[in-house]
Amino acid sequence: MSPLLQGVLTIIIGVGGCVGYFFASNLILDKIIFPPQTVNPGKNINRANMVRPWLFLLPALSALSLYLLYPVVGSFYRSLFNRSGEEFIGFGNYRTMFADDGFQTALLNNFLWVLFVPAAATFLGLLVAQLTDRLAWGNIAKSIIFMPMAISFVGASLIWKFVYANNPDIGLINAIRDSFGAAPLDPLQLPFWNNFFLMFILVWIQTGFAMVILSAALRGIPEETVEAAIIDGANPFQVFFRIKVPQIMGTIVVVWTTITILVLKVFDIVYTMTGGNFGTEILPSYMMAYMFRDDGRATAVAFVIMIIVLPVMIWNIRQARAEMR
């Protein structure tokens, strides 16, 4: 069967199955298990209403537990076993991994990514949001800066290959160097700095995200506070840094953490641009290097990523709970 046909069939079965499940389960609940037309209709309706939320939640909860909750435990469990998965070796995978040069480089580079990308993307996003705020053509400018959000990391990497390429007739950077008479160099092979060339691709993609959210936050600032500051003689820079930024600090933190989480997931850029060579490996790409070869090591890397993410997760949950109260 061709995959396309299989896809159409899956949509029909999936959508039909969902609708059928929700409709039928509600019907059974109301008509058969707890019918309201008996001796005690009120009690039955109450009972049915206690069960109903779980009918609504059942498919989502089962999918979430299977595809996201179980893997947290399953990955940790698997990481305690050796390569073939037969021998229990405790934290052996973690020990060999932390002793591995490649892992140390990846961890260090990942640290750089986590420091640089969210900071740069948030800063540029804030800058663009503020600059375009009162511009007549601001929306067009925003659209263009937002556009890379729609492009895949693989596509973006290819786009940037046309900037970084070694050949001065292809790569923009080397063309500029060439016009000053400098010899071409490969930006992706410059030790240490090549990481930043890769990071900039992600900054290019994520600035639009930061800009959209921060721009909305800037619009939400009460005008009176800004007007009052201007009447008191504040110059535009003071208005921005002393009045506006403190009021949107909460949103800045949200944008920052969201991008931080993303940085820990993206392996595509390193994979496509350098394949982890020239000292550019990061944890997600280091993990993919072991995927299919050594599941014990791969899950151990994944679990390290999980531990790095954990503080953000806890903070998010606390924020969400505080908001609900």
Partner: peptide
């Protein structure tokens, strides 16, 4: 909480 669980964790299991 599950919003930020890294996908990498899910691959092998």
């Amino acid at each position: 909480g599950l919003l930020v669980v890294p996908l990498q964790l899910a691959l092998v299991p």
